[in-house]
Design a protein around this nucleic acid. Structure first.
Length: 480
RNA sequence: GCAGCUGUAGCUCAGUUGGUUAGAGCGCCGGAUUGUGGAUCCGGAGGUCGGCGGUUCGAACCCACCCAGCUGUACCA
């Protein structure tokens, strides 16, 4: 009988998702702890909502049953209702506030952290699951709420050990650009296209955006993007407004006569007056007309935090790192549920992006040095040793595999263990125990030529009294 | 969605104008070594050459279609 070839599944990650382990998790934990500490010090309280929401609660409609909507991961519950994984923390917040409105203190201030999912095409540095850390104030239309978020963001970045000048929190107001468009007689139907074009200013440059505001732009691959179709005068007015270096005074004429524009100016003045009054200068929080944010739901102030230092991409090339946090005011989100307008403002930190940048700045998450106790005959004995070391505050494991000693050492090596403890029959009889410093041994190995020399060298090893185990280990590893 | 590039062992890749049995390094397993990590040496397992058709005496290689991945771009509540 012939062997039937069994078809096996290919071991592979779904596109756009990542496995993470060890140092990366430890580093992220450090970042999350820091952000949490700052947010809580500002009086924001944690709120956890589930990964799934009803699809309509996320603001998605259901055009056809097979594909509830692009962009979200969805599935149908056994009662036929559609559920979707959250794509941000803001939509679940709106649902929560609407559902619990009568019980909540207003303004309601909460932070939320966790993974969000987007069913989109992944790219370099762009995944279908990533972590966001949000803080929002719901139920206040005061500019102090916006100003507070800007300051909190600046403080958070410094708590993460970024120096003054290595980051800048930028603020703008949607109403200003609305004013410019109004004053330039740009049709309201083109507003979205214009916003998206201006948002690409940092990536495409002035010429690229000019093309997108006009007829359109052909990219490197030859693909053509239809533009907003503005005329020369209109394009110039938008570009003049958006180009860096504007001040509140310098943009005032461009929006004069527009109610929206003047309201935007007032809001920005109010925000900046609080911020400056608290001692936050230009180098930390700055007005920048180039910030627009793509999202439709922003209605007023919009913010973005940017890193000013160079970061390397996977190919080792320097790239200008975009924003690591964004946010703004959205006054209409809760109204979807209650019909009642509830003003809100919030900020969201892209933790994964921030982690990439911080890692290159040398941030590392350290884990406790590991001690591996080899299995040499007496299983209970090796566990007793590990147990004793754990009680003394070390991370220690007894080897639970079934290999011989050389393989156990390879295992410890591969684990990155700092120390190996060996207690064979000979040592046990004499009331002794062997401590082997793997890092010291690795140094010795570099100069060893033959295998016999290496085996005989017992590199990095010392024999100590069994009774002094903890004290000797403390001497080698130091106390944590 | 549009465009370009790439699919060969678990991973990274080589494979001559189309020619016999498709290779290397790493990793894995066994040994040199029953209680000492590295380096080295010996041996071994592991392949529908992305899929399906076509051209040919003969296809990993040429052609058509499909699929997947990567990169850019668009969309992104």
């Amino acid at each position: 009988m012939k062997e039937q070839k069994v078809s096996r599944p290919k071991a592979r990650l779904p596109r756009g998702f990542r496995d993470r382990s060890g140092a990366e998790i430890a580093a992220e934990r450090k970042i999350l702890d820091t952000i949490r500490t700052v947010y809580e010090s500002y009086g924001f309280a944690p709120l956890e909502t589930p990964a799934f929401e009803y699809t309509d609660a996320l603001g998605k409609f259901l055009p056809d049953v097979d594909r509830p909507n692009e962009g979200v991961f969805s599935l149908q519950d056994d009662d036929g209702q559609w559920l979707s994984l959250r794509y941000d923390h803001t939509a679940p917040l709106a649902r929560y506030v609407a559902e619990n409105f009568q019980f909540l203190p207003k303004p309601f201030r909460r932070y939320a952290v966790g993974p969000v999912w987007r069913n989109e095409k992944p790219g370099p540095g762009r995944f279908r699951q990533f972590t966001q850390f949000d803080a929002d104030t719901v139920g206040s239309n005061s500019s102090t709420a916006d100003a507070e978020l800007l300051m909190m963001l600046a403080d958070t970045l410094e708590a993460l050990c970024l120096e003054r000048g290595e980051y800048v929190v930028k603020v703008n107001n949607r109403k200003l650009l609305d004013g410019v468009l109004e004053a330039a007689f740009v049709d309201n139907s083109r507003r979205g296209t214009v916003l998206r074009a201006v948002d690409k200013l940092d990536r495409l440059g002035v010429d690229g955006v000019r093309a997108l505001l006009g007829e359109g732009r052909k990219d490197d691959s030859g693909d053509f993007t239809k533009g907003a179709g503005l005329n020369e005068t209109q394009i110039e007015r938008v570009l003049t407004f958006s180009t860096p270096g504007a001040t509140l005074d310098s943009v005032a004429p461009a929006v004069a006569g527009s109610a929206a524009g003047e309201a935007g100016l007032k809001e920005l003045e109010a925000i900046l007056s609080v911020v400056r009054g608290c001692g936050f200068g230009e180098e930390r929080i700055a007005f920048d007309t180039g910030i627009v944010r793509g999202l439709d739901y922003y209605t007023g102030p919009v913010f973005e935090a940017q890193l000013t230092f160079k970061v390397k991409n996977d190919d080792g090339q320097d790239v200008v790192f975009g924003s690591v946090a964004g946010g703004g005011r959205y006054d209409d989100l809760v109204a979807r549920f209650t019909g009642q307008t509830v003003p809100a403002t919030g900020v969201s930190i892209g933790v994964s992006r921030l982690l990439t940048a911080m890692t290159q700045r040398g941030l590392t998450g350290s884990t406790a040095p590991l001690i591996v106790v080899l299995a040499m005959g007496d299983a209970a004995g090796s566990f007793a040793v590990a147990c004793e070391l754990r009680a003394a505050g070390f991370a220690a494991e007894a080897y639970v595999g079934n290999k011989k000693v050389p393989d156990q050492l390879k295992y410890a090596d591969k684990r990155g263990a700092a120390l190996v403890v060996m207690e064979g029959d000979d040592e046990r009889d004499k009331g002794e125990i062997i401590l082997k410093d793997l890092k010291a041994g690795a140094e010795v190995a570099k100069t060893v030529e033959t295998r016999a020399d290496w085996v005989g060298a017992r590199a990095g090893q010392s024999i100590v009294k069994r009774a002094n185990l903890v004290a000797e280990v403390e001497k080698l590893l130091g106390r944590t």
